[in-house]
């Protein structure tokens, strides 16, 4: 279980998180929604220890993120970044097998390559992609390689940061289905950030709506449409009128 208690984070004069409280049950898929600049990505980075909160505690299975031993802690996570964040200088298979080629999870090179090709196949990419460089791939293929890298070491927890941003609706559908399938078959805990309501309905077990630095509403995705929460209603229906100012 991931448990966030009273998380605050300020950048200069910008008070991004103002007391976030959230629980993500083990094996569930939580989707975080909210407007741009509301601190959703910062929240993910706080859990990973990439950003340190000014106040509050984050516990992962009873372990405090700030005091946990970094390597074993991070070995439990996989993350798909918004722009895939593939390493330009490495071929695709070495990107996917990055964790398997060094550190505590190191495997022989041939075995790491086989695993990488298997993971690429899992996300619908052919083995001939393995030796290409990221710059030779389309945006959708890069996202899929990023997804393959996120699941390469069979993590217990997977984060997806805007997995369908910049993709056409068909490719978005493919990525959403892949995420759902992978999370279900691996039994992993998933946390996704997205603005895409189609993705929300495809991926989420539960959702949390963040606005003005706090969680405005959280609950099962099935209750989302009848929540009665004005923030959530405005967001899911994409209305300009409502409690969320259109110009921020």
């Amino acid at each position: 279980m991931i448990q966030l208690t009273d998380i605050h984070k300020t950048f200069g004069s910008n008070h991004v998180l103002r007391g976030v409280n959230l629980e993500i049950a083990k094996g569930s898929s939580m989707v975080i929604i909210g407007g741009s600049g509301t601190g959703k990505s910062v929240l993910l980075k706080c859990i990973l220890g990439l950003v340190h909160p000014d106040q509050g505690t984050i516990m992962v299975d009873g372990q405090n993120v700030e005091t946990a031993s970094r390597d074993p802690f991070l070995a439990r996570f996989g993350m798909l970044f918004q722009g895939a964040a593939l390493f330009d200088s490495l071929p695709v298979w070495q990107n996917v097998a990055f964790r398997l080629l060094r550190g505590s999870l190191k495997r022989p090179k041939t075995e790491a390559r086989e695993i990488a090709i298997e993971k690429l196949r899992r996300v619908g990419l052919k083995p001939d992609v393995a030796d290409k460089f990221p710059a030779e791939l389309s945006g959708g293929m890069q996202k899929r390689v990023g997804l393959a890298r996120a699941i390469a070491a069979d993590p217990e927890i997977i984060f997806f940061d805007e997995p369908t941003t910049g993709l056409d609706p068909i490719m978005s559908g493919v990525i959403n289905d892949l995420i759902r399938e992978i999370v279900t078959e691996m039994g992993a805990t998933a946390m996704t950030i997205t603005h895409d309501m189609t993705s929300v309905r495809a991926i989420a077990d539960n959702i949390a709506m963040i606005h003005e630095g706090v969680v405005q509403w959280t609950g099962p995705v099935a209750q989302m449409d009848a929540s009665g929460n004005p923030y959530l209603d405005q967001f899911i229906h994409g209305r300009a009128e409502g409690p969320i100012a259109a110009v921020r």
Binding site: L48, L74, A85, F87, F98, R99, G103, S104
Partner: peptide, 12 residues
């Protein structure tokens, strides 16, 4: 492009 963050999440 968040590659530095990606390195960190990959325990590097």
């Amino acid at each position: 492009t968040e590659q530095i963050d990606a390195l960190t999440t990959l325990s590097t």
